[in-house]
């Protein structure tokens, strides 16, 4: 009945206001945490150079993944409008989650994103589903953050080497798990995953051994780009 109209609502000032407030909280938190971390870092013996280098490397590292997220924004924009897509990808969720939540939300009122025309109610239900589906992370993380610290302290005491082994094992498992699903897919994703790994295997020791600072900062970026290009060029 009122199809098409929902985008006026979805792109209205009010939605920008709601989205802007949420993004502002994320930025505010990042700002106060960074400020406190910088000053505490100086007090516990980190140097300005160490911290400034960390900041610079993080800018470089953010660029590649941010463009992947931007391409997800493009996919969401069409059906969810600007404000909601922009908010959802700067706040709590991730590209894959938001697509899934949006389609579950509209399906609950019988609208399939992409094939059926979106209705006001379907759009509203998508916003509800995305909100309800994502607060689980933040609620659990917020309740558990300080408790997990106590558990970790108790478990490893002041043994920093053990702490580092635990952290490395967790990272290896998390990213090994993510890689494994691409590795067994045996398609372009597999090529990209192996490509990224091999480039890192070459660049990382090279940068460390010769102490080439710019290469340390850019090696992940090169691994991403190289892995992607090899996969694009791969003949299947």
């Amino acid at each position: 009945m009122e199809q098409g109209n929902y985008l006026e609502m979805a792109n209205s000032m009010w939605m920008w206001l709601a989205a802007g407030l949420a993004v502002a909280v994320v930025l505010f938190q990042a700002f106060i945490f960074a400020r406190k971390s910088y000053s505490t870092g100086l007090e516990i013996g980190l140097t300005r150079t160490q911290m400034n280098d960390a900041i610079k490397s993080s800018v470089i590292t953010s660029i590649g993944p941010s463009f992947v997220i931007l391409s997800a924004l493009l996919a969401l924009l069409v059906s969810l409008g600007g404000p909601l897509s922009w908010m959802r990808l700067s706040f709590i969720g991730s590209a894959m989650f938001e697509m899934m939540a949006a389609s579950f939300g509209t399906q609950a009122v019988g609208v399939t994103i992409g094939s059926d025309p979106m209705t006001h109610v379907a759009f509203a239900n998508a916003t509800w589903t995305m909100a309800l589906g994502s607060i689980g992370w933040i609620v659990f993380a917020t309740l558990a953050a300080d408790k997990m610290d106590k558990v970790q302290q108790k478990f490893s005491g002041s043994d920093t080497a053990l702490m580092s082994v635990i952290a490395s094992a967790a990272v290896l498992a998390a990213f090994g798990g993510n890689s494994a699903s691409h590795l067994i897919a045996l398609n372009k994703n597999t090529v990209s995953c192996i490509g990224g790994g091999v480039i890192m295997l070459i660049l990382s020791p090279l940068a460390d051994k010769r102490n080439i600072k710019w290469l340390k900062e850019w090696s992940l970026f090169f691994a991403l780009l190289g892995g992607m290009l090899i996969a694009v060029a791969w003949p299947f």
Partner: peptide
């Protein structure tokens, strides 16, 4: 762009594997 992500996972795993 979708192929950046598997490369990222592989690269980070390798960085820690070393």
């Amino acid at each position: 762009l979708q192929l950046l992500l598997p490369a990222l996972f592989g690269a980070i795993f390798t960085q820690f594997a070393i």
